[in-house]
């Protein structure tokens, strides 16, 4: 059952949340989740709308690469966004009438496929899906059988399917847009994905007017924020930062879970550095719950200055991802 496969591909913490919200017994292992989930769907306890709402919040968020853009006034103040009918007309005219405000797709397309375009008055979202499947060994289903006098051993593999999700989302109130890619990093693969987003989005608005977010600057600013935030008000702590100057570079890092800035001798060295002479190359930050953000857990984020890429390292919810992007926009 495809729906079940999509659900089970999400993180345990999110599956538990779905089952809990439906009042279904949770269990402890993935097998328990699967059994209880299927029962809940069969009995009608878990409805399609519940699953769709949950998937919109969970699937394709976190564990991904992000290319961030600032939305300039020329796009944000375009009158088209004030009238949903105008947006619909534009999208229909571009040949995407069949996926305008489409419900969440449960498809596993072999090739990456645009499966939905949504606009709710302030957020424009484009979603692509691509299915992939692989075999997982399951010894519990092995068996032996005698055939024509010979002993045969049958070893069982279970086929598991997962979907890679790619999003483009423009959040007008935040004046931010971002492309979210779950495909593993590869220059060619990501370039192809970015071109695809650009092609589709350009048929709706002037995509080229979006300003690419300078990740190298964010590295420097967030690293400095960690240094100056002695009270831990912002919850942004670098565990690694590589800062380049022409012909040489300096790299700060901690081996453990603490920030390198927690260690006085290394922080003293960092204090001696004048950021104006450096460019941010790469950094690892831990974003955690703090008085000046709305996060509730620790999330590791890597910044790549050279290709203006941000990497989230765990599955998250849409609102958590956007809270991180908001923090990056505000302080980076």
């Amino acid at each position: 059952m495809l729906v079940g496969q999509i659900i089970l591909a999400q993180g345990n913490v999110f599956i538990k949340e779905l089952l809990r919200s439906a009042g279904v017994r949770i269990g402890t292992t993935k097998a328990d989740f699967e059994r209880n989930l299927m029962d809940a769907i069969d009995n009608g306890v878990l409805r399609r709308e519940d699953i769709e709402a949950w998937l919109v919040e969970v699937e394709g968020w976190g564990n991904q690469h992000i290319y961030l853009f600032k939305v300039p006034s020329i796009i944000a103040k375009d009158s088209i966004w004030l009238d949903q009918a105008k947006v619909e007309k534009k999208i229909t005219a571009s040949g995407f009438a069949n996926i305008w405000n489409a419900p969440v797709s449960f498809e596993f397309p072999e090739q990456q496929k645009l499966t939905g375009i949504q606009f709710d008055g302030s957020n424009l979202r484009l979603t692509w899906h691509q299915g992939q499947s692989w075999l997982v060994r399951d010894k519990t289903k092995d068996y032996g059988q005698e055939i024509d006098g010979d002993e045969y051993e049958f070893q069982a593999y279970r086929r598991r399917a997962e979907r890679a999700v790619m999003h483009f989302e423009m959040v007008l109130p935040l004046r931010l847009a971002a492309i979210f890619i779950q495909t593993p990093w590869g220059e060619i693969e990501h370039e192809t994905a970015l071109k695809e987003v650009s092609k589709i989005a350009s048929s709706i608005f002037d995509f080229d007017s979006l300003e690419e977010y300078k990740v190298s600057l964010a590295i420097k600013h967030l690293d400095q924020l960690g240094l100056d935030d002695q009270q831990g008000q912002y919850g942004i702590q670098p565990s690694m930062a590589r800062l380049d100057s022409p012909g040489a570079y300096v790299e700060f890092g901690s081996v453990g879970e603490k920030s390198y800035q927690d260690f006085t001798p290394v922080r003293e060295v960092r204090r001696a550095l004048k950021p104006a002479y450096f460019t941010g190359n790469k950094s690892d930050f831990m974003f955690s719950a703090a008085p000046k953000n709305a996060l509730s857990r620790k999330i590791r984020v890597t910044f790549y200055g050279k290709d203006d890429r941000i990497r989230l390292w765990m599955q998250m919810k849409a609102r958590e991802v956007w809270e991180i992007l908001r923090m990056i926009k505000t302080h980076g």
Partner: peptide
């Protein structure tokens, strides 16, 4: 094997 002294970050 690491040997740790837990202490809050100092101030600059």
């Amino acid at each position: 094997h690491r040997f740790i002294r837990e202490a809050p970050r100092t101030r600059d």
